[in-house]
Each structure stands twice: as C-alpha cells, then as structure tokens.
C-alpha cells in the first residue's frame, strides 16, 4: 500500500505524525522503527544511537537518535517505556533504515502501561492519516532512487 510512493503497512501501529511504526510482540514488548515518510524526510542516514537497554524513557524522550546529512534528530517516543534491545544490524549499517524501513527495526521497548498501543493509530484510520501527511507536506518517497 502506498501514498506518493511512500509504503504503508496497515497491520502496524503509528504515532499521530507517522514518524515511527510499532509492532506488538507476543511478549508484550513493542518493536519500534521509522516510517518510509521519516526516512525520506531524513535522507541518507549515517548514524543511529539507541539508549542503553534497561534505560527508562519517559514520553517525549527519544528512544534513539539518528543522523543524516549532518542533521541529528530524535526517533521519538510516545509513551513511557524501558529499552529492551537495540537492533545491532542497524547500528552497524544505518543505511538499512533507508533501504527497508519496515524490516530494519531500531529498538524493542517494554511499555510502562500494557495498553500503550491503544493511544496509537492503526488500520484504515492510520492509512488515511499517513496519506494526508504525504499530501499536506508534499512528501514523495523513492527508495529505489537512493
């Protein structure tokens, strides 16, 4: 599923700005990554830093930071959580975030509240919000061209 060439996955959860995607794991943990929109806006990603496992991150404090074209920026966090793990493959090869944003997860986190995903967007509501942001900000994705 796409909007302006930006891939969308209806089975995932998203923040209200579609900066990050989240997937619920059987353990109750959430896997966090960047959306196709975010990797496009960022450009070629050169560095990723994930907070140490065990670190408590409160809502609004980033779980990770990325760097592209000399811009440092947060991978935002929309609920209180503890960092469980970082994706070592992505830490070594940050370009994976550009190449395959929905496979290249960044961190696994344990949310403080078990119902944290309830506040997130998913399914058809997410698809329309995701497309709306692509249109509003005139964002066009083209991973093949990178």
């Amino acid at each position: 599923m796409e909007c302006n060439g930006c891939e969308f996955r209806p089975e995932l959860y998203y923040d209200s700005e579609y900066q990050i995607w989240l997937r619920r794991e059987e353990t109750g943990d959430l896997t966090v990554g960047m959306t196709d929109i975010s990797q496009t806006v960022a450009g070629r990603i050169l560095h990723v830093r994930v907070r140490k496992p065990g670190t408590l991150r409160s809502r609004g404090k980033p779980v990770a930071t990325i760097e592209s074209g000399k811009w440092a920026g947060p991978v935002p966090n929309v609920f209180d959580c503890v960092i469980e793990a970082a994706n070592a493959e992505v830490l070594e090869n940050p370009g994976l975030l550009n190449a395959e944003p929905y496979e290249a997860w960044i961190a696994r986190v344990k949310p403080a509240a078990p119902d944290a995903v309830e506040a997130l967007v998913t399914g058809e509501a997410a698809r329309s919000g995701y497309c709306e942001r692509c249109r509003r900000e005139d964002i066009h994705c083209g991973r093949g061209a990178r």
Binding site: V41, G43, S68, G69, W71, E137, D138, I139
Partner: peptide, 8 residues
Amino acid sequence: VADMESVS
C-alpha cells in the same frame, strides 16, 4: 520545505 536536505 519538508525534508532536511532542502532546509540545509
């Protein structure tokens, strides 16, 4: 402008 490269 939306993307960081354009801002730069």
